[in-house]
Design a protein around this nucleic acid. Structure first.
Lengths: 170, 170
DNA sequence: CAATAATTTCAATAAAAAATGAAGTCCCGG
DNA sequence: CCGGGACTTCATTTTTTATTGAAATTATTG
């Protein structure tokens, strides 16, 4: 059976252009901020500047990332609405395009990270209020003051969120 | 040479109260959001509900964390303004108190994470504009449009930050 | 000033997170 | 329906990040 020449480590798909590299680095940095792994930033960065839809294997070979990373990264990006699959006639593969609406990331972050944590925090605060019931009056007073602070802060955050969202989305 | 009885894993300092546990878990979760390690959340959580200043070794033994983690965590928290060292008469050790102003974390995050990344992103965008100079007019047009989007979004974010800060700080 | 307690630092280790790629699943076109 | 490409999953490995604790440094105090 014939075998292609051994794949050199640095061979990969077409080299990335400088433009692509800048875009990719930019998104790696930004998405890291909201806790997304490097590979996701790479994929989105590449798609962001791509002049046409890219298939998964193109993404893999351009970025030198594994099948699994490409598949999972695209899944996440699709889930968040930051990438769309498009139909390309005469090609069996899915092709992907970046949604240029950056607010998708902010929205997803707020919905998936911030909100749940705030909810959880409110539960804990309620629990803390209960617990402070059996304390000496003195301790109780001090504790309640702190809890009030926490609540106040959370409420402030909660009030701000819709405003931020509206502002970001357009 | 005499040896103390073997230290049991679960021995440690005075057990944490339920209240302390709730507070600690809450802050672990919140601070994780802005990329701070668990130990930092633990320390802040403990200090937040503590009725009096705590020395580093008390923190260590209550939380069962190492000398290094305690020292580094406190250093970080002090750096961010979330914890203050107080003088306790007749005690050689430093004692620490939580600053209840939660906005300290938001401020630090914006200053230390968000702002630098935005600056860096703007640099990259400038570079991208340069690079798009030698492209076919068609490609160039499409690329410039994307770059405009990026800029627009960054500017929007930049305008929003001071507002958010003002809102959070009181 | 010693003596020693308190704290910081940092190389080594452990824990957590991300990437890999082989095995399995799901089509689509003949 | 079956053959094979496209994709997904997930156990394993790699990489990154956090924690540990011993050694070095910096006070404090008798």
């Amino acid at each position: 059976m014939l075998e292609k020449s051994i794949t050199l480590p640095e061979e990969a798909g077409k080299e990335l252009s400088e433009l692509e590299i800048e875009a990719i680095q930019m998104f790696i940095n930004f998405l890291k901020l909201i806790g997304l792994p490097k590979s996701v930033g790479e994929i989105y960065g590449l798609l962001f500047v791509a002049p046409k839809p890219l298939a998964m294997d193109e993404i893999m070979s351009r970025l030198n990332i594994s099948l699994g990373a490409a598949s999972q990264g695209l899944k996440l990006l699709r889930g968040v609405g930051a990438v769309k699959a498009t139909y390309v006639p005469g090609d069996r593969r899915d092709h992907y395009v970046a949604d240029l609406e950056l607010s998708k990331f902010a929205t997803a972050f707020i919905k998936e990270e911030l909100h749940p944590r705030m909810e959880r925090a409110l539960e804990r605060i309620r629990r803390m209020e209960q617990l402070s019931a059996d304390m000496t009056p003195e301790q109780r007073k001090a504790t309640m003051m702190k809890i009030e602070r926490l609540k106040h802060w959370l409420e402030k955050g909660n009030k701000m969120l819709p405003w931020i969202l509206k502002f970001l989305v357009r």
